[in-house]
Write a protein that binds this DNA or RNA. Structure first.
Length: 274
DNA sequence: AACGCGCCCTGTCCGC
DNA sequence: TGCGGACAGGGCGCGT
C-alpha cells in the first residue's frame, strides 16, 4: 500500500485542490470497495450537495470531512489511487471504482486494481470510535521512546509484525517497517518485548526519520502507488533494504537477506541488525 | 486475549 | 509464445 508517506502526499495535494468544493454526485462502479452495509444511495444522500471542509490523514487513511460533520474515510489497500481527472495521467486509470463529481466540473476518481481498498462513511460519533481503534501517530509529539518502550512490554511478536499492527503505531507498513528496523540496527524477527529503552529510542527515531524522508520524496512507488495527479513517488531508489535481497548492505557490504515472517517478506542485514 | 494464518483480487514476472 | 506458480506496499475474520 500506500503507507503513511504515500497517504500524506495524496492528502496534501488534495487539500489544496478540493477543499471548499462541494460534491455534486457519486457513481459507484465497483460496490465491493464500500464498507459492509454502505450503498451508493447512502453515500449519495449523505455527501451530494455538501462541501468538503478538510482533507486529513489518520494512519494510512485519507479522511474527507464534510460541512455536515460527515466523514468519508478512504483506505487505499494495496493498489488504491485517488486521482483528479484534470491531471493528464487520469486517462491511464483502468480500474475506476468510484467517481465523485465536484461543483466545478472536475471528477475525483478512486481507482483500485485489486480492490483491497475500502470506503467508510462516518458520523462524528462513529468516527470517534473508529479513530480510537488506531494507535499513535508516529509523527506526533505523543510518539516518544518511553511510549514505544512501554507499548512493547510483554509481547513476543516479531518486531516487524509488531510495527504493522495499526492499533499500536498507526501508518507503518511493510516497506517502512523494514527500513526503520535496518536504520535502528534491530533484527525484524526479534521479539518486540525484548528491546530495551535505548533500542526503543533508536527505533522511534528511525521510524520518524524514514517517514519524514519518504514524505519529502512524495512516497515510494514500488509498483502501483500514484499521487493525486497520478504520478509516481521518488523514494524507491533510496530504500536501503526493502526489495534488495542479495545486494550489499549500504553500511557494511554484507549481502542483504530476505526471510518470510507471517507470510510477508522481511529484508535485513544479517551483520548490522541484532 | 493475543496471535498466526488464510483470504479478498488483479497484474506482473520468472522459470520451464 | 504460453503457462503455471510465486509474489506484491493491507487488513479483516477466523480458529486456537
Amino acid at each position: 500500500m500506500p503507507e503513511l508517506p504515500e497517504a500524506e502526499t495524496i492528502v496534501r495535494d488534495l487539500r489544496d485542490r478540493i477543499v471548499g468544493h462541494a460534491v455534486t454526485g457519486i457513481a459507484v462502479i465497483r460496490p465491493d470497495i464500500l464498507a459492509p452495509g454502505l450503498t451508493r444511495d447512502h453515500l449519495d444522500a449523505s455527501l451530494a450537495g455538501y462541501r468538503i471542509l478538510a482533507v486529513d490523514r489518520r494512519a494510512k487513511n485519507i479522511v474527507l470531512r464534510f460541512d455536515t460533520g460527515r466523514i468519508l474515510l478512504v483506505n487505499l489497500g494495496m493498489t488504491g489511487r485517488l486521482v483528479l481527472d484534470d491531471s493528464p495521467r487520469a486517462a491511464e486509470l483502468r480500474h475506476v471504482a468510484v467517481r465523485f463529481g465536484l461543483d466545478d466540473g472536475r471528477t475525483l476518481l478512486y481507482d483500485d486494481i485489486r480492490r483491497f481498498g475500502r470506503m467508510e462513511l462516518h458520523s462524528p460519533e462513529s468516527w470517534a470510535e473508529r479513530d480510537a481503534t488506531l494507535g499513535t501517530e508516529p509523527l506526533s509529539e505523543d510518539f516518544t521512546a518511553e511510549r514505544l518502550f512501554e507499548m512493547t512490554r510483554g509481547t513476543r511478536v516479531p518486531l516487524r509484525n509488531w510495527l504493522l499492527d495499526q492499533r499500536k503505531v498507526a501508518g507503518v507498513g511493510n516497506i517502512y517497517a523494514n527500513e526503520a528496523l535496518f536504520r535502528a540496527g534491530l533484527h525484524p524477527a526479534r521479539p518486540a518485548g525484548s528491546i530495551d529503552l535505548e533500542e526503543a529510542a533508536r527505533l522511534r527515531d528511525a521510524i520518524r526519520n524514514v517517514l519524514e524522508e519518504a514524505i519529502e520524496a512524495r512516497g515510494t512507488t514500488f509498483s502501483d502507488y500514484r499521487d493525486a495527479s497520478g504520478e509516481a513517488g521518488a523514494y524507491e531508489p533510496r530504500l536501503r533494504v526493502y526489495g534488495r535481497e542479495g545486494r550489499p548492505c549500504p553500511v557494511c557490504g554484507t549481502p542483504l537477506q530476505r526471510i518470510v515472517i507471517s507470510n510477508r517478506s522481511a529484508f535485513f542485514c544479517p551483520r548490522c541488525q541484532k
